[in-house]
Design a protein around this nucleic acid. Structure first.
Lengths: 199, 199
DNA sequence: TGACGATGTTACCGATCGGTACGTAACGTG
DNA sequence: CACGTTACGTACCGATCGGTAACATCGTCA
């Protein structure tokens, strides 16, 4: 007899999945350039050829890492959206307040996309292009939120919020907590209220 | 007869100076990790032993580069200070408006200090420590300007301005101009006026 | 002239980088 | 059992990394 009716017995995750998880840990904490493929495969418990069977190159793994990472951002957005349905202002402020809290963590490393863009100044680099692509999606979402709030100039408001977001990502790493990043929520309120009136 | 009364005929700059200039060019444009010492010495027209006679290591040259770079920031500050003596608000806004303009350059690479901090996540790294030290001096200056303007909460205003500055540094690289960085002046006005009243 | 400090030249070090050729164990299917 | 497929490991590649040893050359000043 079979101990479980499930057709899939608990199997070891595939080498590709283990590598993605390992890349998540190492790339985020130390940066992409700073981590060698040897360290990645050891941390994943696999070997180098397995990496190059699942991904075209280290850059390929890095772009996959960026996509995985950004999914966490959208998961966070889905959360604040569920907490404040039909209230764009509350959604935004919940995100910014949460960002202020997270940026106070001792090992905070900001946004992996932002970090990757600074690590790869060459605009033609595939890792950089993927990061820029994902960042533009964030701006589109912010413009949409600004529209929902009836902003005087939605794009201008979105741009201001982007400055605060990116500033918090960077400053959270540069200054010991509580640093300037703690003010990101208060500043966001100011920008929003200036264009939409207080909620 | 002598063609010039100057006691110093035009001499070739020292190897150290040429190396600092070469580091300025290459480190700023491509990042510190991305540039090898071989490229630096070739670009400087000197040889590797000359580098290691003038600097203890690549990290030593990198910290010298950060100090050189930051001097340009203070030169800029001296300029806006001379243009608007005894007017802290005008000084700040002149800097932020200039930042918005500079960040629109096609090859804009933001602030070398910020970039270095993201390149070296290890807080104990000497390059990172130097960058953080210089960044704190900027915050001290902003707090002083906020005090001059009679801000309700000078540290809070300084932190808000830092978020905008750092955001512009990063976003200027991430988005093609005119990107969100173009709004940094308008946002700074908003933050300042919220604490000090319109000028 | 002779000593000196700064620089250039050449050759080299060990370590690490990203990437690959090649062999093998486990598996399902005829 | 024989077979093809899939997944994986051992061992290695050439290139580049930051850094150094040993010696030659130059201009300057006493």
């Amino acid at each position: 007899m079979r101990s479980s009716p499930a057709p899939r017995p608990p199997r070891r995750p595939t080498a590709a999945d283990r590598l993605r998880q390992s890349a998540r840990d190492l790339f985020y904490r130390q940066g992409i350039r700073a981590v060698g493929v040897e360290e990645i495969v050891q941390n994943a418990g696999v070997t180098k050829p397995s990496l190059y069977r699942a991904f075209a190159s280290k850059d390929g793994l890095a772009t996959a890492f960026l996509a995985d990472y950004q999914q966490c951002f959208w998961d966070r957005i889905a959360l604040v959206r569920a907490e404040h349905p039909d209230d764009a202002r509350a959604q935004l402020l919940a995100y910014f307040d949460g960002l202020a809290e997270r940026s106070a963590a001792a090992d905070y490393r900001g946004c992996a996309l932002t970090n990757a863009i600074l690590e790869y100044p060459d605009r033609a680099h595939p890792v950089r292009q993927e990061a820029a692509r994902l960042k533009h999606q964030v701006r589109d979402w912010l413009v949409d939120r600004a529209l929902q709030m009836g902003a005087t100039n939605p794009e201008q408001l979105a741009d201001g919020l982007i400055l605060l977001m990116e500033g918090a990502y960077v400053v959270g790493q540069a200054f010991p907590p509580p640093g300037p990043a703690a003010q990101v929520g208060a500043c966001a309120r100011l920008l929003i209220d200036a264009q939409c009136g207080p909620g």
